[in-house]
Design a protein around this nucleic acid. Structure first.
Length: 496
RNA sequence: GUCUCCUUCGUCUAGUGGUUAGGACACCGGGUUUUCAUCCCGGCAACAGGGGUUCGACUCCCCUAGGAGAUGCCA
């Protein structure tokens, strides 16, 4: 029987790392085993449903290149793939459970439920959850309850004794006493929508899902789901509970720890390849030497038995390192195209960029490609090439062991050396400066640093002579002159 | 509280009875270099603890400790 797996997100928020990891593993397992990957939208929570979240889901999968074989957008034999479109199906199956005596209606109000819970809390009772008030009501009692609350929920009758177990590919056998399972979980809400438990079991069965790969936070409801399968007379699929993704403090990864939404990473300039690569290594590994993988390679090499049991901490630093690696691997032309939106967004270049700006960017590529960690970094790194910058304050210009006066001298001399800037080679220019330093007995750094600050506005910049060349002689010289003015002013202030 | 699961360097991990316990990120040195970055070299650093089993345990079993997750008309 061929493998059929699914990713079944709930469109209540932006796609986050944890969800995407689950999606990826399911997808990779399907591909590596020649099976099918199915997308199912679990929108049974009408309160929390968000149109934007749904859109974000498609965009995210698309960005990663994770394509589904069956799903809302591509169709398939087991549709519809949106749970809200399967409303009637759940009604039907809930009815079956009711008829077979595996489930019952419950008219308890939210108020009563909270009262029950509060009481349990006060008494520090070890018994938690629903008190099964409606489980064995007489017909007369039912009538009475109906008057109080006309919209009942449907609850599953969990056996009072015995235990239920299931086998997990990673964990092995997991057993839970039935008395420890959430007493009679709601299957059908009062608004007629199913809860996750019902919808998930019904759909996975109807869609002929063979393996369920989901996060370990679902382990506790495993036995409950198995009970449901049995109530229907079905065989449960194979389970594989994936290790959770944690933050640095060991707690479930959340906004507290940093970005969690894929969209945020994307906006910051993370590459899809880098994220795929990093995420694939979250709880999975290939061997002890290889850690670079393309999606295509993963589709081939991925295997369930290399998944780790223990939860993993999401390491932002390593992701960033991967991103830098992938940026450096990128074709320069391609990378350039990817950078433009960031430059436009930060108003470093026009929208669309002018031919001159594109030309400059083109030539700047070799200078910035090995310096970028995130695409986002490009604006700060290249702003001085495209925009006017304020003359740096004198203090920033003066290198160690120099003062305003000597720095101004240095810059003035540099001005002359830079006369042939436009038509001279970078190497030759550098040679000139080296000779100048030897002649004057100044350190090369003491000359280049004030120049760098004058021209780029920062002590950190791409290589100086290349930068000057890109900037053009005119702007370069005028920035140096502006810097000299700053220094002269400072000199005067000191004299006074 | 109760239940379930987990436990190799700070982090991600390799390892399936005999290894100087390997790699990567981070960190710290050093080199290349006009700054930054890249790149190269080197260093630091781990089998949670205690019992067994065994000629021999990181590897198998038990206990303890620690961590996490679940305990909803959310998924």
């Amino acid at each position: 029987m061929s493998v059929r797996v699914r990713y079944a997100p709930s469109p209540t928020g932006l796609q986050h790392i944890g969800g995407v990891r689950t999606a990826l593993f399911n997808y990779l397992f399907a591909r590596s085993s020649g099976g099918s990957f199915i997308l199912r939208i679990e929108d049974t929570d009408q309160q929390r449903f968000s149109e934007e979240a749904l859109k974000d889901l498609y965009e995210t999968l698309d960005w990663f290149g994770i394509r589904c074989d069956e799903g809302p957008d591509v169709g398939g034999a087991c549709g519809p793939y949106i749970q809200s479109h399967r409303f009637d199906i759940y009604q039907e199956y809930a009815r079956k459970l009711l008829d077979s005596g595996h489930a019952y209606r419950c008219w308890c109000t939210a108020e009563r439920l909270t009262a029950v819970r509060e009481k349990q809390e006060q008494e520090k009772s070890s018994y938690k959850g629903y008190d099964r008030h409606c489980r064995d009501l007489t017909a007369a009692q039912q009538e009475e309850m109906k008057r109080e609350n006309p919209n009942p929920v449907v609850r599953l009758k969990i056996p009072l004794d015995g235990s239920t177990s299931f086998s997990d590919m990673l964990m092995g056998e997991i057993t839970r006493k039935n008395s420890d399972i959430n007493p009679d979980p709601v299957l059908m809400k009062s608004d007629g929508y199913p809860t996750y438990h019902l919808a998930n079991v019904v759909d996975d069965h109807l869609m002929e899902i063979t393996h369920i790969l989901r996060a370990q936070e679902w382990i506790p409801s495993g036995p409950l789901h198995v009970l449901l399968y049995r109530a229907f007379g079905w065989d449960p699929p194979v389970y594989c509970h994936l290790p959770m993704v944690m933050g640095k403090d060991g707690q479930k990864l959340s906004k507290r720890h940093g970005s969690t939404a894929v969209r945020e990473f994307r906006e910051q300039g993370y590459l899809s390849e880098a994220m795929i690569n990093y995420i694939s290594l979250l709880g999975w590994s290939f061997d002890d030497k290889r850690e670079f993988f393309t999606l295509q390679e993963l589709e081939e090499l991925f295997s369930l038995d290399k998944i780790n049991k223990a939860p993993g901490v999401f390491d932002y630093k390593k992701l960033e390192w991967f991103n830098g690696q992938y940026i450096r691997m990128k074709d320069a032309r391609q990378l350039k195209e990817m950078l433009i939106p960031y430059l436009v967004h930060d108003q470093v270049v026009d929208n669309p960029p002018s031919p001159q700006q594109l030309e400059i960017l083109d030539q700047a590529m070799p200078l910035i490609q090995e310096r970028l960690h995130l695409l986002n970094d490009v604006s700060e790194m290249t702003r001085f090439l495209f925009c006017d910058i304020p003359a740096p304050p004198a203090d920033q210009l003066i290198p160690k062991k120099h003062d305003a006066s000597s720095t101004a001298e240095i810059l003035s001399s540099s001005l002359k050396l830079l006369e042939p800037l436009d038509d001279d080679s970078v190497d030759r220019l550098e040679q000139e400066f080296r000779e100048f330093c030897t002649r004057e007995g100044i350190k090369l750094g003491a000359v280049l640093m004030p120049l760098r600050v004058a021209v780029t506005g920062s002590t950190i910049s791409p290589p100086l002579f290349e930068s000057m060349k890109l900037l053009g002689k005119e702007k370069t010289l005028s920035r140096i002159e502006a810097a000299i003015d700053q220094l002269r002013q400072k000199e005067q202030e000191c004299d006074e």
